[in-house]
Amino acid sequence: MGKSVLSQINASILINAIYAMQGYPAMLISNLLSPISIIIIVTFASHGSLLGEAVSGGLITAFVGGGLSLQADLAHLKNDFKLQDMVVSSPTSAGVYLFGMAISELIFQIPSIITLLALAFFFVHATLFAAAEVFAVLVLLYAFSIVLGFFLSTVSSDILQSWAFIGILSILLTTIPPVYYPINYIPMPWRYIAYISPTTYAAGIVQVSLGYLPPSQSNIALDWAVLIALCIILFVIAVKKNRWRDV
């Protein structure tokens, strides 16, 4: 990676993470609280029996949420400050801009990720292999949500529209899928609705590998295949249809 590409990546990190945190520290607290709040609800509602599921669900939500908040951040920078226009016409490419912004979003998630990992350390019992598998799912999920968020931000023309995107996506990616509890808690035929969401497949893999879902209830190979296929399809759409350069 050339020195100038590093500078370009750092520019996004400075604008969207470092300087933003200096300006508005409340953002950190809000990010920290959002996954934890649902863990609290699920844990108490299940009398503690779903604590492990809730913690792993919290991790999934944190990574999916990264893309959702990135979508809002990028749309704000693009529509209200015209930053995207200034960057488009600079040597920074869309990919490098997005990579920098993806890291900036991750930096914001650090406190909540550390908290969740600490909870996982105490309450989730995973083999090394399972941990690696969960890690891979989270990385893939993050890539998915970041690319989706970037794509939507380039087509959004106002913050109201961005909020609408967030509303729809958070239902699709975090409400419908059984993130905080095993999928067999959803009675048939409702389970089919859950399968609309890519997060469902991610949650399936995580829950089986952590032992919250009997392997018979889920087809890991199929889950992986669907998840990877969805990532590829989204990536192709995002590359072809994004409005990085306006039309």
Binding site: K3, S4, V5, S7, Q8, N10, A11, L14, I15, Y19, M86, V87, S90, P91, T92, Y97
Partner: peptide, 10 residues
């Protein structure tokens, strides 16, 4: 930050 997007070091 704009100069960094243009590839200039910090």
């Amino acid at each position: 930050t704009y100069l960094m997007y243009r590839g200039v070091g910090f």
